[in-house]
Structures are given as structure tokens and as C-alpha cells.
């Protein structure tokens, strides 16, 4: 046995060497399988964790995600002072159209999931935003039929949602939340859902957490809301600082004959 083994030793060694060379040129399947299995497992664990974390961060307001709308392209942000009121006869010279913050009527428009068929006075709508509502404004000339129905379905009977036509809107759709606006062209845009998820009653973003959505007979009739006024407000309007817009300096002779340059 021993001698036989020894005798065959040399040729066997060569054979083994050759075999190992052959094996090296081929694939070490066992090792590959083991490596792939470990990588798949690790990748799976990583993937699970990643999905969990990104799901937690996506459009869900939380203490560590105070403004999820930062991840939405196209959102315009502006900081406004809360709690400045005007009365039913006054107008505010808003800095944005549609406005999404600033002085507003003491009474809010009802925002208990109401789809207003007619355009509503801005000063009442802005107060709904202070309470955490989302206002969907649309251009009645460009948003009709199925697109309009889709928007209505997002609002109808949903708390802290309100919708109204906005004549002359520069884009088909405009979403408003206090200090946030997103203008869009399509009712099918996924950012509509993202905006609503991110900002509706987001206590980190609107000034009055807990503010109510029904006006309860305090001066706003949702069945006959005060109408939207398209004309620019006059010099008697209230400015964004809550103070009357100071009229332009008295028209001196110089202003009637401006210097030509």
C-alpha cells in the first residue's frame, strides 16, 4: 500500500497539480456561492434598514423631520408673522398669488373638507392656513372634467382640506399651506399627495396647532362665502406687516414729469 502510493506519488502529484491548475482556470463554485450568499444576506439586511429609514423620513412630519416638503421639488417657502387680523371690509396687499401667509380676516373660511364652487376671498382663506389646512386653488379655465374631479376627491369631506377656483391663476393648480406653496400643471402629479402628507396639520409648520376649521357662525357663511376680488387692492389696503400700506408720497410736480434718463 505504502510503496504503491509512493510509486504513484509523482505522477499523482503532477496530476493533482494539473487538476488544481484546471480548477483554478474554472470556477471555485463553493466559495462563490458562499460569498454570494453572505453578500445577499448583508444586502438584504441593509436594504431592509434603508427602506425602513427612508419610509420613516418620507413626507411624514416628525420631530426629526419637521418639514418633509423640503424633499419635494418646486415648493416655494416664505416666513410670515401669525395673528394679524383685518376686518371684513379690509383688503390685504398680499405678496403672493394665491397668498399663503400674512395678515388675514379674523374669521377663517370653513376648511372642513369643503369644495367651494366659487372663488373665495383671500383674506378668509389665508386664516385656514394658519390653522393647518391645505388649500387647493385651481384655474377654472384650465382645470376641468376628470382633472377637476380628481382634485375634488382629495378635498371633499376631508378635515383641514379646502378647495376653490382662483381666476387668473398663472398655473393650472396651486397648493397652499402656511408658508409653503407648490404650483403644478397636472392633477396627476405625485407631488400633490406628497405636499398634503407633508404639511396638513403639520404642527411644526403652521402657527396655531389645534386651530379649528369650522367657523361656526362667527362671520363666515360657507354656503355664500365672500367673493374673491381680482382687482389689485388700493392704497387703503393692509400691508404684509399688518399696517396700512402707506400711500405713495404726495404727487409733487416732479412725479407728474418724471426725469427722463
Amino acid at each position: 500500500m505504502a510503496s504503491g502510493t509512493k510509486k504513484k506519488g509523482k505522477p499523482n502529484a503532477v496530476k493533482a497539480a494539473r487538476a488544481s491548475v484546471v480548477a483554478k482556470k474554472g470556477k471555485p463554485w463553493g466559495t462563490i456561492a458562499a460569498v454570494v450568499a453572505v453578500l445577499l444576506l448583508a444586502g438584504g439586511v441593509f436594504g431592509y434598514a434603508y427602506v425602513k429609514v427612508s419610509a420613516a423620513e418620507k413626507f411624514l412630519p416628525a420631530d426629526d423631520n419637521k418639514d418633509p416638503s423640503e424633499k419635494i421639488a418646486g415648493v416655494v417657502r416664505q416666513t410670515y408673522s401669525p395673528g394679524q387680523h383685518v376686518d371684513a371690509t379690509q383688503r390685504v396687499a398680499y405678496d403672493q398669488s394665491p397668498p399663503f401667509g400674512g395678515p388675514h380676516d379674523g374669521v377663517w373660511a370653513d376648511c372642513t373638507g369643503i369644495v367651494y364652487p366659487t372663488a373665495v376671498r383671500n383674506e378668509n382663506m389665508v386664516h385656514t392656513l394658519e390653522h393647518g389646512a391645505i388649500w387647493i386653488a385651481y384655474n377654472p379655465d384650465t382645470v376641468t372634467g376628470p382633472a377637476l374631479d380628481k382634485l375634488k376627491s382629495l378635498v371633499d369631506n376631508k378635515p383641514y382640506m379646502v378647495m376653490s377656483p382662483y381666476p387668473g391663476l398663472d398655473r393650472p393648480i396651486s397648493l397652499q399651506s402656511w408658508g409653503h406653496q407648490l404650483k403644478l400643471d397636472s392633477a396627476d402629479d405625485e407631488r400633490i399627495d406628497q405636499f398634503i402628507r407633508s404639511l396638513r396639520t403639520n404642527v411644526y409648520q403652521h402657527p396655531e396647532p389645534g386651530g379649528r376649521c369650522d367657523s361656526n357662525g362667527t362671520g363666515f357663511n360657507p354656503a355664500a362665502p365672500p367673493p374673491f376680488v381680482a382687482e389689485q387692492p388700493g392704497p387703503d389696503a393692509i400691508g404684509m406687516d399688518g399696517k396700512p400700506v402707506t400711500p405713495a408720497p404726495p404727487a409733487a410736480p416732479t412725479s407728474s414729469a418724471p426725469p427722463t434718463q
Binding site: 386651530g211 362667527t218 362671520g219
Partner: peptide, 11 residues
């Protein structure tokens, strides 16, 4: 009345 309702419901 408006302001009172606003304060009451929010608080």
C-alpha cells in the same frame, strides 16, 4: 365673538 371662538377652540 370671532376672536373668542378662535382662542377657545385652539386652546
Amino acid at each position: 365673538r370671532q376672536l373668542a371662538f378662535d382662542i377657545e377652540s385652539t386652546q
